[in-house]
């Protein structure tokens, strides 16, 4: 009798489940990338520019490899902005300037946090 309504309710529920899965997937990506950023920052602080460059490069690569997914769920300007921040971190790490690495790491970390933050269901995000 109410097949259409049942399907609509199921679709709405599926959309919400998809949205929650999306938040989790982005959060998991954020955690992995932020860990690499932290690693690069610590390595730069410990005067190990090679390890810092490796970690920064890994973070940028992981972000680039998630391209197929992020292009579906994030605005392309946000994706490019994060890529730029991670690129700046890698550039600073290669230059071996620990002060610059710390600054770039801070920027990249806060940008990554904001990517997930805008997807989280909060009054501020809704309105």
């Amino acid at each position: 009798m109410m097949i259409k309504e049942f399907l609509a309710a199921a679709l709405l529920a599926a959309l919400f489940i998809g949205a929650v899965a999306n938040i989790r997937a982005l959060d998991s990506l954020r955690v992995s990338i932020v860990l690499m950023i932290d690693e690069a920052e610590h390595a730069a602080g410990a005067d190990d520019p090679d390890a810092a460059a490796r970690a920064a490069e890994d973070a940028a690569r992981l972000w680039e490899n998630s391209d197929a997914y992020t292009h579906i769920v994030l605005r392309h300007s946000v994706i490019e902005d994060v890529s730029d921040k991670l690129g700046e971190l890698a550039k600073a790490a290669y230059a071996g300037n620990s002060g610059e690495v710390i600054g770039a790491a801070k920027n990249a970390r806060s940008r990554m946090e904001s990517v997930v933050e805008i997807e989280r269901v909060k009054m501020g995000s809704i309105f």
Binding site: L15, F16, G18, I23, E119, V121
Partner: peptide, 10 residues
Amino acid sequence: MAIVIIRTLI
């Protein structure tokens, strides 16, 4: 995405 759904509903 959840924000988009909730905003649309509102």
